[in-house]
Every structure is written in C-alpha cells, then in structure tokens.
C-alpha cells in the first residue's frame, strides 16, 4: 500500500490547525477542529487497510472468502466520531453563548482574560 493515505492524514491535521490559528470566527475555528479530527479518521482507516480485502462484516461472509480489513481500527474510528460529535456540539453551544454575551465571535475582538 502506498504512503499517500498517511500523507493525506497528516495534511488534513495540519490544515485544520492552520485554520484554527488564522481563524477570524469561532464557528469557523470549531469546524476547523473537526477537520483536524478527520485527519485521525483517515490515519486509523489507513492503518487497518489491506489490499484486496473486504469490509469486516462476518454475517454473510462465506468461509475461506477474501480477507477482511482490520475491524479494530474501524471500531476506534466510530468511537472517535462519537467523541468528536460531543466535542463539536458542546463547543458550538459555547460559541453561541459567546455571540450572545459579547456580540462578536471574532477571537481578535474578545478581550484578553488576563487581568
């Protein structure tokens, strides 16, 4: 298997973090965080991939059929997605509160918390 999926995973993570660093909008920053996390999905799936293998669904699989990809990383990816949904929902709710209380969601216009 080629190295391309690993490079893609690293690229997605870096693009996501770049987005957060340069973000002018908290909603945008939270979405960039989800992008960063998508990099880990690609990495996990790339690790479990095998050339010529099929999906790890065992119910209708004939005995001695084609090999399957690694189900463990797929389970990890699913868990990761659940975690990501929780984090994104919570952070978006906080961003809505920032917009309501401060009247802006530009991180540059939020006053420093340092006194």
């Amino acid at each position: 298997m080629s190295h391309l999926p690993y490079l893609a995973a690293g690229w997605i993570v870096i693009v996501g973090i770049y987005g957060i660093v340069t973000s002018r909008d908290l909603i945008h920053a939270v979405v960039c965080l989800s992008v960063t996390q998508s990099g880990t999905y690609v990495l996990l799936l790339a690790i479990g991939y095998r050339d010529g293998a099929t999906a790890p669904v065992f119910s209708d699989r004939p005995p001695h059929g084609r090999p399957v990809t690694d189900p463990v990383v797929q389970a990890m990816t699913l868990t990761d997605i659940v975690v990501g949904a929780t984090v994104t929902a919570l952070l978006l709710a906080l961003a809505v509160q920032v917009a309501k209380r401060r009247g802006t969601i530009d991180p540059g216009e939020l006053r420093s918390l340092e006194s």
Binding site: I17, I20, V21, S23, A29, P107, L113, E114
Partner: peptide
Amino acid sequence: LHSGHIGDYAA
C-alpha cells in the same frame, strides 16, 4: 503573551 486569542494558543 497570554492574550486569550485561540489562534495564538494553537500556534
């Protein structure tokens, strides 16, 4: 330095 700006923190 402790600006409260999320972009700075990520950098």
